[in-house]
Design a protein around this nucleic acid. Structure first.
Lengths: 337, 337
DNA sequence: CCTGGCACTCCGGGGTCCTCAGTGCTAATT
DNA sequence: AATTAGCACTGAGGACCCCGGAGTGCCAGG
């Protein structure tokens, strides 16, 4: 049904359309790509491609434009990830090298990815679920309040103020701190709930209320709010594009963090590049965008995702190359921290 | 030169133009505002206003549009800050009340402000320079590394990993921690450099290298990187506006945090509302935007700024009311934390 | 000093025309 | 059977023109 040449035509259509942003006609194709056949032949192939839904005409007597389905085939079978150039790789390395803490690593990564792809970049903070507790700190703040700081081995620091504990006693806090650290430091976060279950019983009754309050906040902050932090950059790059949906819709979608997190999370093939094209994104405002995402992590455990959002008409091989490369470098930097 | 009526005309021009986004003519003014004079008279006034540079015509035979100078006069003398409605105030309160930590307070504040004003909101994290040290924590991470966490009384937590200390000895770290806290906890950040100056001398020589390294990172993180954190929301609201400069330029300007920080920082009258109109913003991309900003803080000490960026054609009284109200509420919440 | 009247200006919407890129079809060629 | 040349057809969009109407500046009279 789709012989080699028809596929070549589809590839050519996608490539030309991405370059020119104009419907591509049979003559232009014959000229620019060495397909070895006449425009008329190409037209016949185009009819076949159109019948199968890979390309479409904006109107009669216009050239063809790839459909979502056409891009999908292109990404799956007609293209390969384009590796970055050596200068680009060096730029990544030097750009990320200077970061002093996790916040800065993430901030630099997202700006870097936006610059490389000239699109909107998204970086998710390393998930808490896969990390383990490095240390728990309790600091009396005066009054009835205590600040809890949890430090994980992925560099993330979670902080919470706990209020209304009744009188806060310095030594009681110290006891609780060392008890907590003995119980859970080094533990994987998933193991924390079990590990602290019977701690309150070991606390003298007069401080049990405080212990319970602290533990409930601890569990809550580690388990419930775990993946929600993401950072964006490069929204200005959207202004150049003209979307089918309004730019406003796209910007609105990008501000809804939960939507982005869900979209990033839906990778089919973990630890590989995922490309979601056009209507494959369930979200209304992102119907005319594509999302290229990848996992990053230390070793072969995935910590979180990074990704790029751009028009469906995007340079897939190049974008995929940039996302993959940046994901790898972030993993390395994180491992070195 | 500018009698009462001319000022009334200018006010009417600004108000109508903000409402309709179309040049306003003399007839429309006479109809909609009870100025008590005929269109012809208004035309004469308009000529005077135009000669003085307060309004301008996009082209002959069009109505008038306020200039930056016109908006400036309007803001300074012709309008008053519009207080929020009771439901709006309640909404603010309930929206901010549920925040559990500083990050969430800031995140909610910026979204709230964006929603209230239907423009781009900016919130700067509480400055470190005005806060004082609550507690310093040092956590050995294994290897040659130590994590330092500084907790301030404004709820901010700064973290840094310090590497290459040679062998890290647990008790040495403990000693250094308690020495540090004795020396600086409770101190205003500005006083920290002096207070730690002679600490290394008190450390046993074999651990002095570590102490020096820790102190230098401490000073660096507190002094050098102090104001740089800001958060944006509501960029989608820009899509509805048509700017003289391209939308892209505006979005780009908004991504340059340093630019925004500088603009927010340039308040004329501290602890008051500041309005910067059009070309008063030195930055190219923001030539056709106005910025309304205010300080927020606890008691009467200012901790940082919040602000709103929108088209020069904005509802100044309403925006100023929202910014002022949100600034006050954030201050209260922060004081309560 | 204000106002009605009037001639003038010019933007913007609507209509028409025309060009031209690109198509689909048919018949000829390989 | 596949490819190609030729050709009539289609529709978007640019150029052009026209015209209505909002709005102006100016003048003369109240």
């Amino acid at each position: 049904m789709l012989d080699e040449r028809k596929l070549a035509v589809l590839r050519a259509v996608v490539e030309d359309f991405v370059n020119t942003n104009e419907p591509v006609g049979s003559r232009a194709l014959a000229d620019r790509h060495r397909l070895g056949v006449s425009p008329a032949t190409i037209r016949n192939d185009m009819v076949a491609l159109e019948e199968d839904g890979y390309i479409a005409q904006p109107h009669t007597s216009a050239g063809r434009v790839p459909t979502d389905k056409g891009y999908r085939l292109f990404v799956d079978r007609l293209s390969s990830v384009k590796p970055l150039s050596a200068p680009e790789r060096r730029a990544i390395e030097s750009f990320l090298a200077g970061a002093v803490d996790l916040d800065e690593i993430v901030a630099r990564t997202v700006r870097l990815l936006a610059q490389l792809t000239r699109q909107v970049a998204i970086v998710q903070y390393p998930s808490l679920t896969r990390s383990s507790v490095q240390h728990v700190e309790l600091v009396p703040l005066g009054g009835q309040r205590v600040m809890m700081v949890v430090i994980t081995d992925t560099g993330r620091v979670e902080q919470r103020v706990i209020d209304g504990l009744g009188e806060v006693n310095g030594t009681a806090v110290n006891d609780l701190r060392s008890m907590l650290n003995r119980a859970i430091s080094g533990l994987h976060l998933g193991e924390v709930p079990d590990a602290v279950e019977d701690l309150p019983a070991q606390v003298p009754p007069e401080h049990r209320q405080m212990a319970v309050a602290v533990l409930s906040v601890l569990l809550e902050s580690l388990v419930e709010r775990h993946e929600e932090k993401i950072v964006l950059a490069g929204t200005a790059n959207l202004a150049a594009v003209d979307f089918a949906a309004s730019l406003r819709d796209v910007l609105e979608a990008l501000e809804e963090n939960m939507v982005l997190i869900r979209l990033l999370g839906e990778a089919k093939d973990p630890s590989m590049l995922t490309v979601r094209i056009g209507a494959e994104n369930f979200h209304e405002g992102l119907r005319s965008t594509s999302i290229v995402s990848a996992d990053y992590g230390v070793g072969n455990q995935s910590l979180a995702k990074i990704g790029v959002v751009g028009p469906t008409r995007m340079d897939y091989p190049g974008t995929m190359g940039a996302v993959r490369a940046v994901a790898r470098y972030v993993g390395q930097i994180l491992a070195g921290q």
